[in-house]
Simulated assay, not measured.
Amino acid sequence: MAVVLRRLFWLSLLAVLVGVPMAVYQQWLDVPRQWNPWAPLDVQDPPSLLTGFKLMRLQQDPALCVQALSSSSLTYDLLPDSTPAADCPLENSVRVRGSGVSFNSSYLATCKLAVAYALFERHGLQPAAQEVFGQPVTRIEHFGSFACRNIGNSQRRSQHASANALDIAGFRLRDGQRITLARDWQGEGDEARFLRKVRDAACEHFNITLGPEYNAAHHDHFHVDMGMFRLCR
């Protein structure tokens, strides 16, 4: 009898694990959008355990990506697939021109990176600025995104080679105050506290975040990307 009950338990559990996702996918079961793994990602929704899965789907589905971008504050141009440099093709990419903040220049980004940035700005960067300074960030200074090159002296392609990475160097607040990693990371005031909060927020929204504590090459910027691995340094 006990063996029969155990088998029934495992069969029931299997039915739930398979049946519930199928019911949600087929829209037989109605769940809130942010908890539906098949619902389009909405940048306005607070991030959840499903956000990473939804981001992963975007790079292979341009239409789904456009839908996610349309829920953000980004201004952007959709770009056709191209190969701007030998051996560095760009697919499902956009040129980001602005958002809730301005940039020192527009930049290329994979759709997935652009949406991750939009999530970071709304749910990480601006809350950090409001908490520390009581005002928003209005401008971001970056060192660029696309660069057809390898990682350091290795044979592995950098995420920059597919516009899947962005190097963020500094921020300007509404009152004009400028905060840079090169000058303010090592301090002990509000600027350093803000930069560490920004680093922590970036770790939540991007797959990889590398800053001054990683190595000397990153002493003046945060490298963020949407590569396959997760790393926060």
Rank of each mutant, 00 (worst) to 15 (best):
I168T: 09
K112T: 13
F120E: 01
R178Y: 10
L90V: 01
H223Q: 03
V4E: 12
L50Q: 06
M22Y: 13
G134I: 00
Q59L: 02
R172F: 08
R199W: 09
D200S: 14
D225P: 05
L49E: 10
L78T: 12
T209W: 07
A129Q: 06
L14R: 08
L181S: 10
D77H: 10
M226W: 08
H160A: 02
A161S: 15
S162L: 05
V224F: 04
Q26P: 00
R156H: 13
A129P: 03
T83P: 01
A85K: 07
Q130G: 03
L113D: 02
R199N: 10
A182L: 15
Q177R: 15
V24E: 09
S158A: 12
L49S: 09
N215R: 11
G189L: 05
A192Y: 06
R199K: 15
V43D: 02
C65D: 02
R196M: 07
A118N: 01
V3P: 00
L41R: 03
V132L: 10
D184M: 04
S105L: 01
R157Q: 12
Y117P: 00
R6S: 13
D225R: 05
K197C: 05
N104Q: 05
P136L: 04
A128Q: 11
S106H: 08
H142A: 07
A118Q: 01
R7T: 03
L69G: 06
F103V: 01
W10G: 01
H223K: 06
V96Y: 08
R33T: 12
K112D: 08
D225Q: 04
V96I: 11
W35T: 00
N207C: 05
W10N: 02
T83K: 10
L78N: 08
F229N: 06
L181H: 09
R33F: 12
P80W: 09
R157M: 13
R199G: 14
P46T: 03
I208P: 01
Q59K: 06
A163K: 05
G170D: 07
D77Y: 07
D87G: 11
R193W: 12
P212T: 10
E204H: 14
Q26Y: 15
L58V: 09
E131A: 15
W185D: 06
Q26V: 08
P21I: 02
S70I: 04
H221I: 12
L173R: 09
R7Y: 12
E204P: 00
L41V: 10
Q159F: 09
E204L: 13
A39D: 06
E121R: 04
D30H: 13
F53A: 14
W185E: 07
A116T: 06
N150P: 00
I208A: 08
Q26T: 14
W28H: 11
A182F: 13
R139F: 14
A68P: 02
E191N: 14
A201I: 02
N207R: 14
D167P: 07
Q135R: 13
A217W: 11
Q177V: 12
Y25C: 00
R199E: 15
N150A: 07
I208W: 08
I208V: 15
V224G: 02
I179R: 03
R193H: 13
G152N: 10
T180D: 09
F171Q: 06
S99Q: 04
D77I: 01
G176S: 06
G100V: 10
R174G: 00
G134H: 07
C111T: 11
